[in-house]
Computed example of a mutant assay.
Amino acid sequence: MSDSSSETEDFGDSELGCKSQNGIKLFNKIQNKSRNRKANKKRAEARTQDGQAEAYARAEATDHRTGVFSAGAGAGVAVVNGDDRFLELKANADAEFGLGGAIAEAGVNGAAYRHQEKNGNSGLSLSLLEGSIGGGVGLGAGGAKAKVDAKVDVVHTRIKFDDDVAVDARLGLNASTGAELGPAGASVSFLGFGISVGRKTGFSFPFGEFSLNF
């Protein structure tokens, strides 16, 4: 493990169904920036590659020294050929506590095929035969969350314009159920039928989803 002064990486990943729309993490991030102190981070990471097969695992815990504490872990395996990934499986979880509240999220995602192209902070991804399940619970000044996402997609496309703006489109089966509420937006869904407004704005049905993230 090693010490670092940088802020913890956000292990939340929208592909895994565990990226928050409520404001808990946003409030905690503002808390960190307002006090501008060096974080104490402990991190462990392992990665191995045998031919085109790749596997990794990582974990970290951070005392931001601002009253915010966070931790995350992730692991994954895939067969890699340039920008193409086959038989990919990945999982991650994260939790944090601060003035914005406490929140814990986790998710698992797998895809038979995934193509990814990146250009700085922008990029494009196309996934075929993808399945994901994830969710989380959280409560505090930044909002509330109690949600489970469960999706099986024939095709999933994502266009990312920068760190904050992306468009998602899915065609498949969706049984997501739950709700989120906070300054960053709100969403509600039941067995795949849902609507969201705010940083993520879109709609979903049991057979697909379209959303704009910003």
Rank of each mutant, 00 (worst) to 15 (best):
E209R: 06
D149W: 01
L181N: 00
G100V: 01
R43K: 15
D84E: 14
L126E: 03
G185C: 04
V77W: 08
T157N: 01
E209M: 03
H115G: 08
A57H: 00
E105I: 06
A59Y: 00
N109F: 09
N81K: 05
A144R: 14
L173I: 08
L126H: 04
S5F: 09
E180P: 03
G182P: 03
I30V: 09
Y56A: 12
L126G: 00
L26D: 13
S5D: 14
S5V: 13
D153K: 06
G182Y: 01
G101H: 02
G140T: 04
K147A: 12
G135Q: 03
G110L: 10
G131P: 12
E117L: 12
G74W: 05
D163T: 05
N119G: 03
A46T: 09
P183R: 01
G51L: 12
S211A: 15
F214M: 06
R85V: 03
A146V: 15
L139T: 07
G51N: 09
I30W: 00
S187W: 05
A61S: 14
A78S: 11
R47D: 11
G107E: 04
S14K: 06
I159A: 09
G182H: 01
G142A: 00
H64Q: 13
G123Y: 07
G72L: 04
K145Y: 03
T8H: 11
V167E: 07
D10N: 14
T48V: 09
A73I: 10
G82C: 03
D163R: 10
